[in-house]
């Protein structure tokens, strides 16, 4: 907008809403219908996961509600108690729809909690490295580089081979796999930001290092971090499913989507596709919606692509 002469400005300035960064961000985000669809689906999935026990036709892990006679029914079949298995049932007579609702809870729970933990660790390390500089930074980033040069699945495999199985061990493995991504991202942006003058100014004002680090440096490192975090949640969910499928992930007592799919593997070859198929679709839809949102976030938050 042109800066107008004061007396003239009052009458001629158009009454447009003030463009706050948040408004601009929201408007940019909403530009892509695909991303909006992703966001809606994602919110729906999170909602389902949160209220799974209240909306599932049956509690798939209450053995009293299962009837082995209802095992391996195709989608749409009627169960003995009279309700319909919309997505079929597995070998135990478990309603796949309910299984998926509960599975989403576990998959999302493991994915999000590992991402949050990894973010906390990676952010602290990355910020500290960028701030400390010198040998400390060199060492920390060397560790990050080495860790990142190994594929996630290999690191997870090593850890689980050493640690053994269990929900917390899987989360520990996922955190180990992810933290370095955050550390690298934070350190990269923090380095750029650090050189800017406002940090210099904050230091000249005599603010404590801690305050400068977390109140001044951190907020400016957030945009790329948000993008990485979104993508990492999707990665964590996919990796957990993969590990569970391979039989080295979550225990049978925490039936995530990966375990449901593994469960149906043996029936697949005899044409009973639904046991593996539908949990896979749920997993896919979850990951796709997160990635769609993440993709748009990346475009919106990337200063290089802003025109």
């Amino acid at each position: 907008m042109a800066t107008v002469l004061p007396h003239e400005g009052v009458e001629s300035a158009p009454v447009a809403p003030v463009e706050t960064p948040w408004r601009r961000f929201a408007a940019d985000f909403l530009e892509s219908p695909l991303a909006v669809a992703g966001l809606v689906v994602l919110l729906l999935i999170v909602g389902i996961a949160l209220v799974a026990p209240f909306i599932s036709p049956q509690n798939p892990y209450d053995l009293n509600q299962l009837d082995i006679m209802d095992g391996n029914l195709p989608p749409g079949a009627k169960s003995a108690p009279g309700y319909i298995y919309w997505l079929g049932s597995d070998d135990q007579g478990r309603d796949m729809l309910s299984g998926i609702f509960y599975g989403l809870r576990i998959s999302l729970g493991v994915g999000v909690s590992s991402a949050v933990l990894a973010l906390a660790i990676g952010l602290t390390v990355g910020l500290f490295a960028a701030y400390a500089g010198g040998k400390v930074e060199g060492f920390l980033m060397r560790v990050v580089d080495i860790q990142l040069s190994f594929p996630a699945i290999l690191v997870a495999l090593i850890l689980l081979a050493v640690l053994g199985e269990g929900t917390w061990k899987v989360i520990a493995a996922l955190v180990t796999v992810q933290w370095a991504y955050y550390a690298r991202t934070v350190r990269g942006t923090a380095l750029v930001e650090r050189r800017k003058e406002y940090i210099e100014a904050a230091l000249c004002l005599g603010l404590s290092h801690r305050r400068v680090m977390f109140r001044h440096l951190l907020p400016n490192c957030l945009p790329p971090l948000i993008v990485v975090a979104t993508v990492q949640v999707a990665h964590a969910i996919a990796l957990e499913a993969t590990l569970s499928f391979l039989g080295i992930g979550l225990p049978i007592t925490s039936p995530s989507l990966g375990l449901l799919i593994a469960n149906g593997f043996e029936y697949l070859l005899s044409g009973k596709y639904w046991i593996s198929f539908f949990p896979g679709v749920a997993l896919l839809v979850t990951i796709v919606s997160i990635n769609l949102v993440g993709d748009q976030l990346r475009d919106v938050l990337n200063p290089r692509l802003q025109k």
Partner: peptide, 12 residues
């Protein structure tokens, strides 16, 4: 010169 070049998007 007082002021700035006007935005070509909203040229008066």
């Amino acid at each position: 010169i007082p002021g700035m070049t006007p935005s070509l998007l909203r040229l008066p």
